[in-house]
Write a protein that binds this DNA or RNA. Structure first.
Lengths: 186, 186
DNA sequence: CTACTCATGTAAATAGTTACATGATTTG
DNA sequence: CAAATCATGTAACTATTTACATGAGTAG
């Protein structure tokens, strides 16, 4: 682990930022590849500063408000680049509460199981629409050297995953429904 | 959160088990919907026992070795069933170290990025094969009331996700390669 | 002047991993 | 009899979440 470190270093490698901006960037720009609350980011920045991987300068915005603008150091950059070119192991199975619930769903009345599946389907469909609206903003595939090219790849993966989720949920609903109808015919 | 609780209650609702067997069941039978080490499971069992949601009886295996065979109580069952029929929110974006790495990969030489993608592809292909071997053991779709029916649904989802991952990684490789060739032609 | 966003932290609790620790039983 | 698996735990550390706490700047 210790991945948050690289999320921060990677972002600062592109552009200097405040802790607040890092929080927003992880929330929105990282396209769901990582997440962290500000309460985790500020202490991490403190520790990275102590280790000499990042540094900051205080800027005054308005008349009083102090902002710490963080940037990556040479040491930080070389640490980041080492991680960036490393072959990573397969990520362990994702914990997914709904999948767990579905796994145990044979103890539910058949209609209830379908209800839960349809609820999840609606949620995933909404998310898929949201992602599609974002990806439609690319009017062409950006050049490989551009950071936008990676954005495009990662976003494409997110869309593909949501499409698969929707398709899978529909298949589950169909299977449940089909068998529900069969039993009602008897 | 507190999902581990329901993973345990759900398994004990099907069958009584020792902590050791629960550990194995979460590792293998849950088909990747949850995971936990024994060092998390034993304390959780202790706490569930204190809350009266599970109970255990000591069995002697061989001549000395004591096993605690856990079973769910009525209170535990009603707690579990309440969770089991609850509409769950969309699960937050999965943290994925490789996706994060790819997101920052525009700072790598193009060949290196392809190398990382191919490494991931190989890992996902191997996993897909493993899942396919498991799903092939079902010679028909089990009846809805059977626990095996849920196994089948969840497993189907896992296969679909791996297929999507492989397809997505191949698309990424193609896009990178295509543009690499283009630039070499110049 | 009010509501919203910018801005930075800490505290407490829960969740999860890795390492430590031990010993019995079974299978080859 | 050696190796693998069964069996149960604790300790220390790391990661993450939720809640607490505060205050400035900006736009309507």
């Amino acid at each position: 682990m210790g991945t948050l470190k690289y999320a921060i270093l990677g972002l600062l490698n592109r552009q200097e930022m405040t802790g607040y901006e890092l929080t927003k960037a992880i929330e929105h720009s990282l396209l769901g590849s990582w997440r962290a609350k500000h309460s985790q980011i500020y202490p991490e920045l403190k520790s990275l500063t102590q280790k000499g991987l990042v540094k900051y300068e205080v800027e005054i915005s308005g008349t009083v408000l102090e902002k710490k603008v963080y940037s990556i150091t040479e040491e930080g950059r070389s640490d980041f680049l080492h991680w960036e070119s490393k072959k990573l192991p397969l990520q362990p199975n994702t914990k997914d509460e709904f999948r767990l619930q579905l796994y145990f769903s044979s103890c539910l009345p058949p209609e209830k199981r379908i209800e839960l599946l349809e609820h999840q389907l609606a949620l995933h469909q909404a998310k898929l629409q949201k992602l599609k609206r974002i990806i439609q903003k690319f009017d062409a595939i950006p050049p490989t050297e551009e950071p936008y090219f990676s954005d495009y790849l990662v976003l494409g993966g997110a869309v593909a995953r949501e499409e698969t989720s929707c398709h899978w949920l529909k298949t589950c609903i169909d299977l449940c429904q089909q068998r529900l109808n069969d039993s009602q015919k008897d």
